[in-house]
């Protein structure tokens, strides 16, 4: 059974210009004190075609985590535009918020992100080379996609052994 449940994520700075930092307010509940820190990451998917273009915008350790409810704000710089394929700069992509314990990912929250020009002329005739300064990023925060993975938590192996 998972010892950490993500109960709420608030997407801040949304919508915003492309170069605004990503900012999430994360609330989670811990059912039992953790011996080690949690590791959170914000990953920007540069292209749907390949994971090669995924960018880890930032990672941070969160701890100590005693039993109870906790909240923190996780902020990360915007993606490096030189690593985004030109054809994928405008349109829909994904940003992922992941959490791992002892290097094992146990939850992943994905949001669709729409990058588009607000200028009508640019929308109708997008330049070959993206003008990032004129792009607005809109995270579709009403439709998070949550994936959970089963991992081993503290003392779980010993507990299972003792129950045998």
């Amino acid at each position: 059974m998972a010892r950490v449940h993500v109960s709420n994520v608030v997407v801040m700075n949304n919508p915003c210009p492309f170069f605004t930092p990503f900012k999430f307010e994360i609330t989670f509940e811990c059912l039992e004190s953790l011996k080690e820190d949690l590791e959170w990451k914000i990953i920007y998917v540069g292209s749907a075609e390949s994971e090669e273009y995924d960018q880890v915008l930032d990672s941070v350790y969160v701890g100590p985590v005693p039993e109870g409810r906790h909240m923190f704000v996780f902020q990360a710089d915007p993606p490096d535009t030189s690593k985004i394929p030109v054809g994928d700069a405008v349109g829909v992509t994904v940003v992922l918020l992941t959490c791992s314990y002892k290097d094992k990912e146990f939850v992943r929250v994905g949001y669709y992100v729409n990058n588009e020009y607000t200028d009508v002329e640019l929308r109708e005739n997008p330049p070959t080379t993206p003008i990032y300064e004129k792009l607005v990023r809109n995270i579709l925060d009403t439709q998070p996609r949550v994936t959970r993975f089963k991992i081993e938590w503290d003392d779980e192996v010993q507990e299972q052994m003792s129950q045998m």
């Binding site: 930032d58 990672s59 350790y61 969160v62 909240m71 923190f72």
Partner: peptide, 10 residues
């Protein structure tokens, strides 16, 4: 050298 956040307890 890695960042560490101690979260706010609710």
């Amino acid at each position: 050298g890695k960042r560490r956040i101690t979260p706010q307890f609710l």
